[in-house]
Every structure is written in C-alpha cells, then in structure tokens.
Simulated assay, not measured.
Amino acid sequence: MHRHKFDALLVSSPPNVRYFTGFDSQFWESPTRPWFVVVPLEGDPVAVIPEIGAPEMALTWMKDIRTWQAQPGQCGH
C-alpha cells in the first residue's frame, strides 16, 4: 500500500473480507446487503456491514464495526 501511495483499501468480496476479519458466514448470499472492510495504511481495519451481521462479526478480532440498517427485500437507493 505504501509503495503505491494508497491511504486505504476497500474490500468487499467474501474471500477478502474473510482474509482481513476471519469472518465467514452464509450472509454473503444476499446481494442486497453488501459487506465492506476499510483497511487503512495505518491502524486497524473497519468493518462496514449490515446490522444483522454485527453480533457475529463481534466474535472476530474486529473492534471497529459500523453497521447500516438492512431490511429483507430492501434495495439500495
């Protein structure tokens, strides 16, 4: 990251989120509820996930978990 002058990475694919957080779940099967992890150049990663996944993500080593409300069948606008 430093070599390419990236301040942070935004990852969203299940394998990448799993790599950085250790979180693995069937929640990935919902395309209307995307999951993101911001990996800063310095400091700990930040999970930005649907609130339904927060309790399970809290079981990982992640400390900064930010959620957004996602209702079943809801699409993003």
Results as ranks from 00 to 15, higher is better:
54 A>K: 15
54 A>N: 06
44 D>C: 05
74 Q>N: 11
22 G>R: 10
47 A>R: 03
39 V>H: 01
38 V>M: 15
64 D>H: 07
21 T>F: 02
10 L>V: 15
43 G>P: 07
3 R>D: 06
26 Q>M: 12
21 T>I: 05
50 P>Y: 05
10 L>C: 12
42 E>H: 13
21 T>G: 01
36 F>V: 10
36 F>I: 07
36 F>D: 06
41 L>C: 07
3 R>T: 09
62 M>S: 01
40 P>E: 01
77 H>W: 10
73 G>I: 11
61 W>G: 00
53 G>S: 14
38 V>P: 05
73 G>P: 05
19 Y>V: 06
5 K>Q: 04
68 W>F: 15
8 A>R: 13
49 I>S: 01
6 F>P: 03
14 P>T: 12
8 A>N: 06
45 P>T: 12
36 F>H: 14
45 P>W: 08
43 G>S: 09
62 M>K: 00
11 V>I: 12
31 P>S: 06
33 R>Y: 04
16 N>M: 12
31 P>K: 06
60 T>G: 02
68 W>H: 09
71 Q>M: 11
30 S>N: 15
30 S>R: 07
40 P>G: 13
62 M>A: 00
18 R>F: 08
50 P>G: 10
6 F>R: 10
3 R>F: 01
74 Q>P: 04
27 F>M: 09
12 S>G: 13
